[in-house]
Design a protein around this nucleic acid. Structure first.
Lengths: 352, 352
DNA sequence: ATTAGCACTCGAAGTTATAGAGTGCTAACA
DNA sequence: TGTTAGCACTCTATAACTTCGAGTGCTAAT
């Protein structure tokens, strides 16, 4: 059941129009466009066919047509006219890279903001998985008799610190010994294995050299348990309120609840497939997401590590524009992060 | 113009009722309450007087009464029956202090969440001003030839870190020298003076001992410029959506905009007066805040440092309950932070 | 001083009327 | 044969009108 050229054209114009106006599209209205030099009646006939084939829907018997999910899908797959970005937009997009930012996190955070500003939708960035990064240096700074702060520097420059309680009778030289042992044995360990290695490699050694390790060990171990950094960054959560389809306070509530609780657990990214992916409404396989479309892209952060960018908006989202923007942003981010990435990466000589 | 006892009673009942129901209070309705054994007509007369005196208002000619701002003010100042907290509530309030938290920030963050959960309003906590804390230790960890991470440990256990670019030709021993100089000269400096002291105390010394300081200095200085930690913590931003008066999407928008942009700049706390303060509607001296009431309290974080807690809600907020909760929370927080606060505080022996 | 009674007001909610945009179908047309 | 004009029909959104009830203020009786 192939679509004729005219049907393709009409489907495209219908989706375009609905994306722009958020109003059901009527035949009369369409026929006024110079791209569709047909009479309303002709268009009505074609629309009826498109509806029969499942690409269009009516909200009620005598309304204009709106795209169905199948219609959006077809539109995204075959009818998208890649949007040329306005220069002012690409200037704004690139503006983050102007002022030399040196911290990955800040870069990602700013990217999220800019993306949401440019699209007027909500952006979600997933930071690169840092669990492959390795420990570069341990250090312990005593604050008073009972407390000290443990500092772990990763090879990407990330620094983690945790307060912990020092057992009584623990001397400065004990701490020094401990730091030395940790640095000897654990530098080069990937974050993911740190917990395990801590036990395997250092427990007996520590106990041999230092008295009173009992308390120390447990409290230090708790201190060292670094959770994989909070990796989700949001931008423009409030933008969704600008969309006419969410003028309803109830929808708003469920959306925000989803962002707060659901999103982290969501499988938006889990796949992390390279390239740009569009998921429309129910394709998200999530009840609360039926009214939304999500477009994801990935970026690379050196050393085989990747992160994801996503834009979430109404199904009636400006797919062309968002795809263009995400494509640009993922490339720019990858390039910029490559520039930032330090030295030879995880395998850079500290393995023991 | 003193109020009679009966007028006081009726004013109180009216405010109480409106706070609970969010509906204008009628005379008939009030007269049903056992506390007000008067006929509707009597109550009408009293209400008319109260309106004349400015304590009550009507939304339209034949509606029931709602409290005016003056009415709320009087209610808060004179009619509040201090609420006895349900035991389950105080248990929940205290639950944060059960599991020993060692980091101030986490404690404050959790407090914000619990406060908003218990009140169903939005909470804002202002962390203690940390600019009085002093530097405990500098350290620099080189990551590769061009990059290093500067780490500053404060005497309260806070750790700041920043990546910076190392000028070419800068050796490991140069870094060591630099760290030593910094530790000699700047340990004990309060955060607030760090920038100034860096120039005064170390610039010439550094330049004497190390070549190529030019680039280093500027890039390091940028790295070391610690902004006073982001000090605002929010809880339950979404709670405002539960309030019937904000069923309107426009109000919602302006509220969230205010939270995102305005609140940090707002003078909620700036005064930081000890004790509990209630600001009602226009008393906030802020256009966008006319529909909201804010209740603030302060807590002490040792060493003369104080932070603030605030609850922001509709004018029709449950003042009694919120005041009780804030009072409890500010005391508990103060106590807990005193326990956490380390050693003798800023004057603890590291002054140079 | 209090209260019952009553006429009056106003908003909320329901009903009806109207206008407009859209449709499907049929018949005329190129 | 594909396209289009014409027309009756459908449905929504909006406005206009009604009804209902809760509330008020005022007056007169208790």
């Amino acid at each position: 059941m192939m679509l004729t050229n005219r049907q393709l054209l009409i489907l495209q114009l219908t989706v375009d129009d609905f994306i722009e106006s958020a109003q059901p599209v009527g035949s009369r209205q369409l026929s006024k466009k110079p791209e569709a030099p047909f009479s309303p009646a002709t268009i009505r006939n074609e629309m009826a066919d498109l509806e029969e084939m499942g690409y269009l829907e009516k909200t009620h018997t005598s309304s204009g047509r709106i795209p169905s999910e199948k219609g959006y899908r077809f539109y995204v797959d075959h009818l998208l006219t890649p949007e040329k970005l306005k220069t002012e937009d690409s200037i704004q997009l690139r503006s983050i890279f102007r002022d030399k930012i040196v911290e990955t996190e800040e870069l990602i955070r700013k990217s999220a903001t800019i993306l949401s500003d440019l699209t007027n939708y909500t952006s979600i960035l997933l930071g690169p998985d840092t669990s492959l990064h390795t420990v570069k240096r341990f250090s312990i700074v005593p604050l008073d008799e009972k407390t000290a702060v443990a500092i772990i520097v990763m090879d990407n420059g990330r620094v983690e610190n945790r307060l912990f309680t020092v057992p009584e009778g623990f001397t400065a030289s004990d701490i020094e010994k401990m730091v030395n042992i940790l640095n000897e044995r654990l530098v080069g360990t990937p974050l993911a294995h740190l917990q395990r290695m801590l036990v395997q490699e250092t427990k007996t050694v520590l106990e041999r050299h230092i008295h009173h390790t009992g308390d120390l060990y447990s409290s230090f171990q708790r201190a060292i348990s670094i959770e994989p950094e909070e990796r989700l960054y949001f931008g423009g959560k409030m933008n969704m309120m600008k969309q006419p389809e969410f003028n309803d306070i109830e929808k708003m509530k469920t959306f925000f609840e989803m962002m707060d609780k659901g999103a982290p657990a969501m499988k938006f990214f889990q796949e992390g497939l390279a390239g740009i992916h569009v998921r429309i409404g129910s394709e998200n396989n999530h009840n609360a997401m039926e009214d939304y479309s999500v477009i994801t892209a990935t970026y690379s952060a050196g050393d085989n590590m990747t992160g994801s960018i996503a834009i979430i908006g109404p199904k009636r989202m400006d797919y062309a524009r968002v795809i263009t923007l995400l494509d640009l942003m993922s490339n720019d981010l990858s390039r910029e992060l490559a520039r930032l990435t330090i030295g030879g990466g995880t395998a850079g000589g500290n393995e023991h």
